[in-house]
Design a protein around this nucleic acid. Structure first.
Lengths: 217, 217
DNA sequence: TGACTGACTCAACACAGTGTCGATAGCGTG
DNA sequence: CACGCTATCGACACTGTGTTGAGTCAGTCA
C-alpha cells in the first residue's frame, strides 16, 4: 500500500487539478485542522476521527498520511522549531543597549510560543509520553540555550560580564526559567507571572545572573 | 453500593483480623503498587489492570476504592504536597550564612522531588490533562513561592537585599527555574544541568537575583 | 439462631478509541 | 486499453475504561 513516509513533506506537486484534493492538500488540511482544534481543545481530547473528518476524509485514510496522532503533532512541532531557528537567526547583538538586546531575545521567545500557543502546550504535554516529541522539544530548547551561551560568552570576552560558572550552565538555568514561567503565564494557573510583567521580571533576572557576581554572604 | 468516597483515607479500623485484606490494606496496597510501578514505568503505560492485579484484586474491585487511575495519582500527590509542607516547616532562616540558608531551601526542594521521582514525574505529566492534578501541583508550587517571597521580603526588611520588583514576582520566576531545571536533571534529557552542579548554579542565580540590583546597561 | 446489613468482590457487558486489511476507484503512462 | 500508483473507505480486531448486577462473607441484633 506504499504508505506515505511519515514526516516527509510529501512528494512534489503532482501537476493538474483533480476533482478531489491532492495528497499534499489533504496533508495540509489535516495539519490545519489540528492546529485549529488545538486552540480550544487539549490534544488528549482530540480523536483521530476529529482530525479525519475535519480534513474531509475517513479515519483509515488519515493513516495514509500520518502514522498516528502524535505524528501530526510532530510535524507541527517541526514548524515550531523552524520558526525558533528563523527567529534566532533574525536577532542581532548590540554592544550598547545591552538590556534591550536581551529583552529582544526573550521577546522573540515569548512571541514564538504565544503565536503557537496551542501547539506549544500540546507538545509540552506530549513530550512526557512520546520520546520523539521530547527529542524535538529538546532540540528547540538546545537552540535557545546555544544562542544564550554564545551571547554570555561574547559579553565575557569583551569584558562586559564577569567570569563565573560555565556560561552554558547559566544559559540552561535561565532558559529553564523562561520555559516554565512562560508556560505558566500562557495557562494562567497560579502561581504565575502576569502577562504584562513576565518579560520585565525575566530580563531583570537574566541581567543579574549574567552581569553581576553572586555576592558571598 | 456505597462506594468509598475517593480521597477519604477510608473508615477507621474495622476491628478483627479477617482472612482477606481489610479495605484500608487494599487501599494501601493499590497506592504502594502504583508507587512501585512508577519507578520504572511511565504513568501512561500503567493500566488499571496492572494496579488491580498488583494489589491482588480484580479491575471492578479497583473501582470500589478509587474512581479512576488519576484518583490514585491524586492521593499520591497529596502525600507529595504534605511532604513539601513538612520540609518547608522544618527550615529555619539564618542571618549569617545566608547563601547556605538558601541552598538548604533548594536542597530540600531537590530532595523532596528526587525521593518521589516517579510520582513527581507522573504528576508533572498528568497536570496537563487533569485539572485536579494541576490544582494539587499548583498548590505545592504556591507553597514554595510563598516561602520564597517571605524570605526575600525578610531580607529586604533587614536591609540585606535591595528593593526592586515585587518579591513575589521574583519568587515565582526563581521557582519556575528550579522546577524546570530539576525536572530536566531528573530525566537527563538535553539540555540539562548535571546532577552535581544543579544546586550550585541555581543558588548562584538566586543570590544574584535577590541580593543584587540588575545593572542598567 | 437466623434474618439483616453493609463492606467487599467479580464475571460479564457496553463503549470509545486505535490501528489494520482487503477491496476498490480514478488517474497518468507506456 | 491495461497496468500501476495514489488515494479512499467499510468492516474488523484489539485494547483499555468504566458500569451493572449478582453475589459472598463477617459481624449484629432481635
Amino acid at each position: 500500500m506504499a504508505k506515505r513516509s511519515s514526516g516527509t513533506p510529501a512528494t512534489a506537486a503532482r501537476g493538474r487539478r483533480s476533482p478531489r484534493m491532492s495528497g499534499d492538500e489533504r496533508e495540509a488540511a489535516i495539519l490545519a485542522t489540528t492546529e485549529k482544534l488545538l486552540e480550544s481543545v487539549p490534544f488528549t481530547d482530540i480523536s483521530i476521527d476529529d482530525l479525519a473528518s475535519g480534513a474531509g476524509i475517513s479515519r483509515p485514510t488519515f493513516y495514509f498520511y500520518f502514522g498516528s496522532k502524535d505524528d501530526v503533532l510532530l510535524a507541527l512541532l517541526d514548524r515550531l522549531v523552524q520558526r525558533s531557528e528563523e527567529a534566532i537567526a533574525g536577532l542581532e547583538p548590540s554592544e550598547d543597549a545591552v538590556r534591550q538586546g536581551w529583552q529582544d531575545v526573550l521577546g522573540v521567545y515569548l512571541d514564538t510560543f504565544t503565536a503557537q500557543r496551542g501547539v506549544a502546550l500540546a507538545c509540552a504535554d506530549a513530550r512526557f509520553r512520546n520520546d520523539r516529541v521530547r527529542e524535538g522539544w529538546d532540540r528547540a530548547a538546545t537552540l535557545w540555550v546555544d544562542n544564550t551561551t554564545a551571547g554570555i560568552e561574547a559579553e565575557r570576552a569583551r569584558g562586559a560580564a564577569p567570569a563565573g560558572r560555565p556560561a552554558r550552565e547559566i544559559a540552561i538555568a535561565l532558559n529553564a526559567m523562561n520555559e516554565r514561567a512562560i508556560y505558566g503565564t500562557l495557562t494562567g494557573a497560579e502561581p504565575s507571572l502576569p502577562r504584562d510583567a513576565v518579560l520585565d521580571v525575566l530580563v531583570d533576572i537574566w541581567m543579574a545572573a549574567i552581569y553581576t557576581t553572586p555576592p558571598k554572604l
